[in-house]
Design a binder for these strands. Structure first.
Lengths: 370, 370
DNA sequence: ACAGCCGTAGCAAGCGCTTTCTACGGAAGA
DNA sequence: TCTTCCGTAGAAAGCGCTTGCTACGGCTGT
């Protein structure tokens, strides 16, 4: 029924071993033989049996990319960029070399799914795994992840973090690309403060997420430095204690990273503190929801209230007014993560690189009235 | 080094065959034995070897989802939805049953990559393939696709189209979910006409794409019905001849499905026909770019010019003014495609279902001045 | 002219799992 | 009590490929 290596070998009048070697190209084969084999492959329309090949070679050409929400361009951009460095041909150049199958796995932000996908990838003996976006900061889950990743690494799977800090116990790690969420958050709020804002609301992401915590800590650092915090700041970088007072702060509302949540959290915020003159959102998507809420309350942006986001997704520049935000080089980071996963690029010194976040000042923020 | 089935068998004091049967659960195994095996699996931290399993069973648990651009929420939403029906546990219910690995493959809209991914999936003996979004209408490529898909189908891979019409020669097909792009396009333009617009520009998607053509044909149908076309309309549904005059129409500009293209194409359009009172964009992303261009030319939306999109992506309702567009039930369609791919749902009668597109009238369209 | 090499190709042993077929023991039927 | 059958477990034959090792010519070096 299906064509096998042996069929090709028979047609080319060589042994299966030779066909295999031609196909893998890592063993000297005479040009004439090679050509004969290639023609046979073509004639027979032969397609390698992946599982058989992976079994025999004890490796596979699968690379897993884990994302929290593929419907969110934040992840789509990174994943797509990573895939350009990994998948099929069309890397721009020819089709030679490490042709791997990049697979994007959508965890939906669920720790269990994250672990399940990792197991599935482990089953497939994946060549590499790229973990994107914020991690869940639950000790139990972190331990499970560390264990799982250690096993993967043991099995020869390369591990790359993209947009999240490596695990504390991460010896399994190969490379980590972390965004400077804290610094970005700090500069954004500093910008608002320099504009004259004193009461700044914060629509945060989900609790127990590294991105959420880091951005919020940056925000608090800026407030603290300006003496604007009723609540203790998060301390310097590396000091995790910033988590402490978060739950009591009336100017901070948590919610998922989506538009609807941004809308509702903003309404709640305005109810709690009608005197805020600026709102910082956990990310651009949330900021869009916040803008809608602000408008529905009859207020203008930025005249009555300033709004800022984070990430600088493509649509942010088109918002009206254009959204002040913090630009993260998502595409570049994703591509670099892809390269690291392929072993095309050396890991940064120390295994971890921090990627700068750039403040983008646009029309949605202005000095408060009065 | 790594734990194998045999190790588990030894520890549980049973044969490898029994362990396999416990794990696959499709053969009677005494409860006591099963439990013993399961404990051994747990103790040893055993993980099935996917390739070996796939090789022996001649099937795999991979499901491929092909998308044109994963950074575009249009695809992200569909792919994510499909994955909820396919991947890991957390389908909501327990972890039983068809636990498969949904993999998203980003073709970047390139025909070659599309084919390559299909080959890669064929290599892996994928259980199913979901093709999303518009197809490239190049005869050569279509033939290659048809051949490839036929081979996949022969090998037992289920094929599902989501958001694209099935291939003409598509006997390989299992199920197709097509959006009513033509009808949606028609109703959108009818709406504009009913508002009083007579000169309507159209920022189309890339040529040779089914979505592009169908949406444009709908637009032309509406113009034609109102006697507004200087150029012949596309004829009724099913008549492919609408393609004919497209290239000459000064009111139509083609470009990729991205924001930047929308911006530039709009500028070009306004240069060519400064008297247009409305602009229809190929999709919402392009519409955003169009809005920016319109504004940069010092015009207001919708007072000076109306703008409309297509898809109703999440951000469209937050544009200012909110974007008039055509809503496509992307999530529902994606989920259904996922179910079809899993064989959880029966294919629609005739193998193809057309999914309705709903006109969403919002603030970005209004009657022209004067 | 002979030993020794190098460049190529083939042999054959798995890789770890699934699955058919066989085997065994006890329960039920005669 | 003996046969038949059912429920359950094992033996073993691959699935299609990779790869270490062996083998075979023809060259080169002496």
């Amino acid at each position: 029924m299906t064509v096998t290596l042996a069929d090709v070998a028979a047609r080319a009048r060589v042994s299966p071993a030779t066909v295999s070697r031609v196909l893998n190209g890592n063993y000297p084969v005479a040009a004439s033989t090679r050509e004969r084999v290639l023609r046979a492959v073509d004639d027979l329309d032969y397609v390698l049996n992946g599982p058989a090949s992976s079994l025999a070679a004890a490796t596979s050409d699968l690379v897993g990319i884990l994302v929290n929400d593929i419907a969110d361009p934040f992840f789509g951009i990174m994943a797509g960029a990573a895939q350009t460095q990994i998948g099929g041909p069309g890397d721009g150049s020819g089709r030679a070399g490490g042709e791997k199958l990049a697979v994007i796995c959508n965890t939906g932000g669920s720790p269990e799914r994250e672990l399940t996908y990792l197991t599935l990838l482990q089953r497939q003996r994946a060549a590499a795994v790229v973990l994107t976006g914020g991690a869940v900061e639950n000790p139990e889950h972190q331990a499970a992840m560390a264990a799982k990743l250690a096993k993967l690494a043991d099995a020869g799977t390369r591990i790359v973090f993209c947009g999240r800090p490596p695990l504390p116990e991460g010896d399994a790690l190969v490379a980590a690309l972390a965004f400077d969420n804290r610094g970005g958050g700090r500069r954004l709020t500093e910008h608002l403060i320099s504009l004259g804002h004193r009461r700044i609301g914060y629509v945060a992401g989900p609790r127990e997420r590294t991105t959420t915590r880091h951005r919020l800590e940056g925000h608090r650092e800026a407030l603290h430095a300006a003496g604007l915090d009723d609540f203790p700041a998060g301390g310097g970088p590396g000091d995790g204690s910033g988590h402490r007072a978060a739950d009591d702060d009336p100017l901070v509302v948590h919610g998922p990273y989506d538009r609807r949540s941004g809308y509702e959290a903003t309404l709640e915020l305005l109810r709690r503190a009608p005197d805020v003159t600026a709102i910082v959102a956990a990310n651009d998507t949330v900021a869009l929801g916040a803008c809608a809420a602000v408008r529905d309350q009859g207020m203008r942006i930025p005249q009555d209230i300033s709004v800022a986001g984070f990430d600088d997704l493509p649509f942010s520049v088109d918002a009206v007014p254009a959204l002040t935000t913090v630009r993260l080089p998502l595409f570049e980071a994703g591509a670099r993560a892809g390269r690291l996963a392929m072993g095309k690029e050396n890991p940064p010194p120390g295994g971890i690189a921090t990627i700068a976040a750039e403040l983008m000042i646009r029309g949605s923020t202005a000095a408060p009235r009065g």
